[in-house]
Design a binder for these strands. Sequence first.
DNA 1: GAGCGTCTATTTGTCTGAGTAATATTCGCT
DNA 2: AGCGAATATTACTCAGACAAATAGACGCTC
Lengths: 238, 238
Amino acid sequence: RPGRRKAGKERLHGSIAHQLGVEIVSGRHQPGDILSNEIEFSERLQVSRSAYREAVRILAAKGLVESRPRVGTRVTEMNRWNLLDPDVLAWFFEAEPARALVEGLFELRMIVEPAAAALAAERRTGAQVEAMREALQIMERAGLKSEAGQSADRDFHQLVLDATGNAPLASLASTIGAGVRWTTFYKSRKHKLPPDPMPEHWAVFDAIAAGDAGGARQAMDVLVANSRAQAADALEDR
Amino acid sequence: RPGRRKAGKERLHGSIAHQLGVEIVSGRHQPGDILSNEIEFSERLQVSRSAYREAVRILAAKGLVESRPRVGTRVTEMNRWNLLDPDVLAWFFEAEPARALVEGLFELRMIVEPAAAALAAERRTGAQVEAMREALQIMERAGLKSEAGQSADRDFHQLVLDATGNAPLASLASTIGAGVRWTTFYKSRKHKLPPDPMPEHWAVFDAIAAGDAGGARQAMDVLVANSRAQAADALEDR
DNA sequence: GAGCGTCTATTTGTCTGAGTAATATTCGCT
DNA sequence: AGCGAATATTACTCAGACAAATAGACGCTC
């Protein structure tokens, strides 16, 4: 009972996976490193072997480690990691993520989200348009500093991706959502308060509502580019 | 010891996760369904509770199920699934994947790969160019019907993504690679033999080697579009 | 001395059975 | 009818044993 780390609502195996995951993505355990054997490791963590093993299964499912008899559990090469797994990404952001990763994620956003906005403009239903409007209104009222505002922001982007009717594309949302969360977090630490992002959001909305694919692409491009610029500023600061 | 399914080199927990994963993505277990409790399920499968539990941890790590005390293990809604997880995708393709999923994946390829090719053209190193050339030469010699040829095809696409220097983007490769594999599989079943894809591949290569971003984007666009068209044909057949 | 099969020790993998913790449901009380 | 406590069900955690796989050492053969 020595206060397991981050013991929120996570189970024991989950919190161990969490802890180990962070230690891996932050470089505390390098690729190629072999973790101590199950018995030793579980004893050091003061948990049963089963709990530890279930944690390892979780990490293995995300590509972070690989277990083999007689060898042990080895941290895999980074190119085998499932970087688009929501948990893995969250673990990256928990420890300070490498600059290259953040830039890579925004580059991916710049590729995917404008294209998604264009598809959404062509395929969105009326109900989806209304849901988007509502999200933006909440966002406008609550402001980006509040939890409700940030949540509405994420909802909006998720709604756009859902409106594409493309499940794999929408699946990127959780990934990208994590990036957005991180950005807004660091934004709030900056003295120079960021420009109001609402006009850009409404521009995206208007184009999607009007069924204007090209306009939606352009508007989303502007939106993500600004977000990216602010993240770049935040990266400068440290 | 009643011949576990797909008992290749997978461990017991892995093969159970595999089997259950396929049953879930193929709709045999619908979202919202609750799996029988651990004791009953593990007894039905004739395995220990630990093996079954580790399998469930794997599925939970990929977002397919969710376990809670007093409720059981429930299949989650599809929008929570990690569709970009290589295993999940492989499970989809093992059972016949829904038409919408295949189309969605190709749509995603059409968005991502041309953009990636453009980035690769700007950033590739000399060594990467040589590796790409080699892959295409192997592909040319071995032909697409052989395992070596298909492997070289995958290598080429992977190399292009690696050359972007963008890790999250490259992480999409395993996903997209799975799609490519599936396409070539069904292509080979079609009577009308598909057009020779080598010229398109060389066009992509030439543009990347020349550092021509726009040309690389265009060439990759053509390549993926053709692949998509062939997949569409294959979908027609069934 | 080189190559090849065998043997062994180490590690993960699997099994069993017990007890704990969390929580949806039920029941009784107000 | 609403609310609070008891209950039953389920996953969760633990402990200890045995099985299977395999990297590396060893010894044998030629």
